[in-house]
Structures are given as structure tokens and as C-alpha cells.
Design a protein around this nucleic acid. Structure first.
Lengths: 168, 168
DNA sequence: TAACGCATGTAATACGTTACATGATTCT
DNA sequence: AGAATCATGTAACGTATTACATGCGTTA
């Protein structure tokens, strides 16, 4: 049940409305987990029922701000430390990079160039968000973007450039 | 419908039984896509119905070997070239590496050391498989393991070592 | 005041996992 | 002969996507 723990983690980093959680899944967590609002709202209701999250405030437009309870924090900690991780992945981008070698070099290069453009744009966006976060001098919680420290984007860009070169 | 195209791609690399496809999902494709036999067999039936795959031979124990049809090859090519990729991912490992900063340094280090041990073991296994494949001098199709060329494992190992050091 | 973005929710459908079920072949 | 592995299939349940549905608050 990773969705549950993703939400607990995002809420522990900072309380949020369901709407804001949806945005954080798109921005912060997009290389790790994905969820839409139609999954998030029902899960928040279940978390409340289980005593793991609670509404700590109401705002305009019937919005409700959620936070993790002590039991929720405990559950998240338990999951991180004790639960054996599932190593399964579903990553359509990686699947395509794997299958692209079935194409003729010309077609392959075209596909890989589209991928390179995407990764470079995404990397630039993440860096801009990270810089913005640092400039605001926020402490505690997450940097908004997980990938900044991972080095994955540089690795992917280097790999794509190499494959494009070799398909020439 | 990535499952469909993952299967078409694996079959284009080499014909296989449903059972062998299940193994290839576990070994070759484990960092890109995951599927169990209970999903693979029904999908093969659908591919046959759609004229994208066909049975090209029967073996012992009622096994049936599947291959891609011309229409299937065309569909795979179309998907790779024309279909806009979905960038959504579900990767529990990445989620955990993101959330691990919510733990106290001691606990975090313990979790990250477990992760490092896992990644190093996986990397060694993948390299062994790749070496074996190269030694057999196979040509055409895939190397069995996608990750060998990607450089992701080195990047992940370096990141984990750095985080473990910083949590000290 | 109209359009846009914020904000929440549900229903139908599709996709994926777990568990159940069975039989064939090979190895010890 | 018995155990292990190969090999296929389905049913029940859980998870995720798409589409439908509604209303509030701000901005042009």
C-alpha cells in the first residue's frame, strides 16, 4: 500500500489539502509515485477512519487541510524501517528506452532525440524549482523535488546522447 | 497499454512461451515493467485475437511458443514512434529513498545500508548475466538485461554511499 | 459577469495481485 | 516413487484511470 505511505510522507513534510497533495504528486514525487485526485480523496477518508490522518483546518471553497496524527507518524516509520520493500516498477519511459533498440537506427535516433529533449526540459524545471526553494530559505520538510540529489538526470542525459551518437 | 507492448517487444526479441515471458519480466525487464503469469496468459490470448501474436509451436507439458505477427511488429513500431509516452511511474524504492529523510539519522542510515546492500547485489547479478550472454556470443535481440548500459546502478550506489556518510 | 482556477467528490471501467487449481516432465 | 520445476489457466479482490458532476472564490 504505497499510496497510503506516500500521502503520510507528504503530509508529514507539511500539512496540505487534497488538492495540494495532488499537485505535490505531480511535482515532487513524479519520478517515484503517481496518483490522481480521484484516488487521493478516498484514501484521505480511509486514513482518517484508521486514525492516521486528521483535518486540522478548513479554508475557503470548502477546502480542508490534513495532517498526520501520531499514529500516522508511527505507521510511516514502521513501514520505512520494518516492511520489506517491493522492488517492482512500472516505468513506461524505461520500457521504451529498452525497446527502442528494435527500431532501425534512423527511427531510433528520432525517438531518442525526443526523449533527450524531454529529460533536459524536465531537469531544467526541477533545478529551477530547487533553486526557488533554496532562495526562500525554507527549512524542515523536503526540498520540493526529489531528483535533485540523485544524479539520475545527468546519467540519463549522458546515456541518451551516447545512444543517439551510436545510431548515426 | 504498456503491458501489451512490453510483451510484443519481448516476443520480437525472441519467440517464447508464456512461462518464459514471465521469467523475462523478472530478469530483463525488472527495472522497467512488471507482470505476473496471471496477467500474461490472458494478454497473449487478447494479442492472438487482435492478430498481433500467434502460436508458432507446441512443446512438452502443453507449452506453446508465441511469436509476433507482421501486424504486431507494425503496432509496436507505431507505439514507439507515434504514441506520446506516459511519464508516470510507480517505484516503491524511489518513494522510500525520498521519504527516508523523515527518519532520524541513525534509523535513516540503517535503512539506507539495507538499500545499498540490495542495489549492489542486484548490480552484481545483472553484470553476471550480461557477461554470460556476451560469452555465449549471441547476436540479435536484446542483451538480457536493460540496465547494463544505463549507468543507473553506479549512480544509485554513489548516492546511497553519500547519504549514509552524511547520516553519520 | 464571464472565465478561470481552486477544491472536492463519485461511478464505471480497466489494470494488477493474490489465491486457487491442475497437470506434465524431469531429477533424485 | 516423491519432490521439484515447468507450464497454463481462472476467480476474487484490490488498485488506478477516466469520465462525470458540482460548487466556491478570484481575476479580467
Amino acid at each position: 500500500m504505497s499510496l497510503r505511505h506516500a500521502i503520510l510522507g507528504l503530509l508529514e513534510s507539511a500539512p496540505a489539502t487534497g488538492y495540494e497533495l495532488t499537485q505535490r504528486f505531480d511535482i515532487s514525487l513524479n519520478t517515484a509515485w503517481h496518483a490522481r485526485h480521484s484516488q487521493i480523496y478516498p484514501e484521505l477518508a480511509k486514513l482518517e477512519e484508521a486514525g492516521l490522518a486528521e483535518v486540522i483546518g478548513e479554508g475557503p471553497r470548502n477546502s480542508r487541510t490534513w495532517a498526520v496524527t501520531d499514529a500516522g507518524r508511527q505507521e510511516l516509520r514502521r513501514w520505512l524501517i520494518e516492511v520489506e520493500p517491493s522492488r517492482h516498477q512500472r516505468n513506461e519511459t524505461a520500457l521504451r528506452w529498452f525497446l527502442v533498440f528494435l527500431l532501425a537506427p534512423d527511427e531510433r535516433r528520432a525517438v531518442l532525440e525526443r526523449e533527450l529533449a524531454y529529460v533536459e526540459r524536465q531537469y531544467a524545471e526541477l533545478r529551477a524549482l530547487g533553486d526557488q526553494f533554496d532562495a526562500e530559505g525554507k527549512t524542515g520538510g523536503f526540498r520540493p523535488v526529489m531528483d535533485l540529489g540523485f544524479g539520475m538526470h545527468e546519467t540519463m542525459i549522458a546515456w541518451l546522447r551516447k545512444q543517439i551518437e551510436e545510431a548515426r
